[in-house]
């Protein structure tokens, strides 16, 4: 198949991670945003963004 599935996945997770990261940054410190003391949107958004970028990198390298 001509489409490398890592490319759309990488794009989606990069956008999703960036959304969570920015939203987490904007709402940092507000009540109800840090379950068990962890600013989870910020932390997990960053992780998902990095995951998405790795997928894009792998897809581009395989071309």
């Amino acid at each position: 198949m001509g489409l490398d599935v890592r490319m759309p996945m990488g794009l989606m997770f990069s956008v999703l991670g960036a959304l969570l990261l920015v939203y987490g940054g904007l709402t940092l410190g507000r009540p109800g945003t840090a379950p068990t003391g962890v600013p989870i949107n910020l932390v997990w958004g960053l992780f998902i963004l990095l995951f998405g970028l790795v997928l894009i990198f792998l897809a581009r390298r395989a071309r």
């Binding site: 959304l19 709402t27 997990w44």
Partner: peptide, 10 residues
Amino acid sequence: HFFPAGLLGL
């Protein structure tokens, strides 16, 4: 219970 807005969407 655990997910704030944002992560709840995820």
